[in-house]
Nucleic acid binder design. Structure first.
Lengths: 232, 232
DNA sequence: CGATTGCCGACTGTCGACAGTTTGCCAGGT
DNA sequence: ACCTGGCAAACTGTCGACAGTCGGCAATCG
């Protein structure tokens, strides 16, 4: 009876100030609108966003747990600055999570999940062809997220989501380069073929290669970006 | 020159109210002093701890990011209640992280780290012999933490630390059973021998077995505990 | 008698304010 | 020229208070 009125409705998103602030800050950081290592003034942000300090602080805590900010007691919050070592760490952990997902899916991937992943690759290629770097990155992350979600372990997924924020942070550091849609498609179809084969060893090999490429891409980008900065 | 004065010193722990509250709450939750699913009253906690609500809220956010609490908008914070599925997820993620660590250490474990791990097993056995269940658990976790720390990836370690809190949460659910110190020693020496052999496959096998045993131990404990509750 | 509606208490979300600390700066001494 | 000490501004940590919201209970209506 009460069901009759709940069709086609979706719970309205509570206008939670904390979440809004967190989204704003996340977007600003990922867009590179802050210098890495920059100190965030609570009062400054509060004034800029037209809210009090309490939501700012809670949002900052949230971003700290996601690795986008670091806090020093009595000093405040700072935008996370990544050095080469941390970059390696991030990709190493990514490898850890995605390997696990791939090996799990090797012998437990539903046909439907595989189809959905195929569709997502198409979306990704489309985004790559559109020329929008940010869209390409989001759809790429969405593909990997979808893959990990297929495992059905929410904690694994949460780990990836946190990592994804840091990955975006890495990517903001690098000079933008266009990547060929065909290459991207091949790269991801390799993963899907490995999954379809059901061979764990092949899956592992495929994801190792895939993430190795991504890591080299980012590391090289950061090096170039840094060289550029020095030349400047 | 400034280096000469920083030896043997450790930063003074700021009497941060938030951290103190977080520690208090963590301890209380892990000790099982709250019913899983119980609602935490901010004002109640604030009064009980003699502080205002702001530090309580921030500490609660911290514990939420660690998976000890869950928050519902406009409703507040609740103690995390784990069902069987989440338990599986936790151990699956643990397997993911520790496999990665073991495989990494298989071909990159310093002799010193190995010695430290051996010493820790001794400490663990001592704790087991002492009969204190909580000490045994802490030393066991300390061993695994030490192993993961040896990889040198701080993000991996952070992932494990978060997971460790949830593992403690699992363990509070089970009825306490005494475990033989010798069995524990064997169990961990198996890991160390695998590491010393430098064979990745053997390492993987060893950690799979080890965590499988731990998972069965906890799952069985929870089932028994639940049966006990039903009988009661 | 069952379902619905309006009200009440308790609680969370948010705010402005105060106290203690950190930081940058300038004067003074070596 | 360098280091030291102290001062002032700005900031963070913490607090108490107010407004909006949620859950439960009783009164009302079918």
């Amino acid at each position: 009876m009460s069901e009759s009125q709940s069709e086609g409705f979706r719970a309205i998103r509570s206008p939670n100030l904390v979440d809004q602030v967190a989204d704003h800050l996340t977007e600003a950081i990922i867009a590179g609108r802050f210098i890495p290592g920059e100190r965030l003034s609570e009062v400054g942000l509060a004034r800029a966003l037209g809210v009090s300090r309490a939501p700012i602080r809670e949002a900052a805590r949230l971003l700290e747990s996601r690795g986008l900010l670091v806090s020093q007691p009595r000093r405040g919050f700072f935008v996370r600055a990544l050095d080469a070592g941390e970059l390696e760490d991030i990709f190493d952990l990514r490898l850890c999570l995605e390997r696990h997902a791939m090996e799990h899916l090797a012998h437990a991937c539903s046909a439907e999940a595989l189809r959905a992943l195929h569709r997502q690759v198409e979306v990704l290629c489309e985004a790559a062809a559109s020329g929008s770097e940010s869209r390409r990155i989001e759809e790429d992350l969405a593909f990997h997220r979808m893959m990990i979600a297929a495992v059905g372990n929410r904690r694994l997924l949460k780990g990836f989501d946190d990592l994804a924020h840091e990955l975006r942070l890495c990517i903001t550091l690098i000079t933008k380069t266009h990547e060929d849609p065909d290459t991207i498609a091949d790269c991801h179809h390799l993963l899907l073929d490995a999954l379809a084969s059901g061979d764990p060893a092949r899956c592992r090999e495929a994801i190792d290669y895939h993430i190795g490429v991504a890591r080299d891409y980012v590391v090289r980008g950061v090096v170039e970006s840094r060289a550029e900065t020095l030349a400047h």
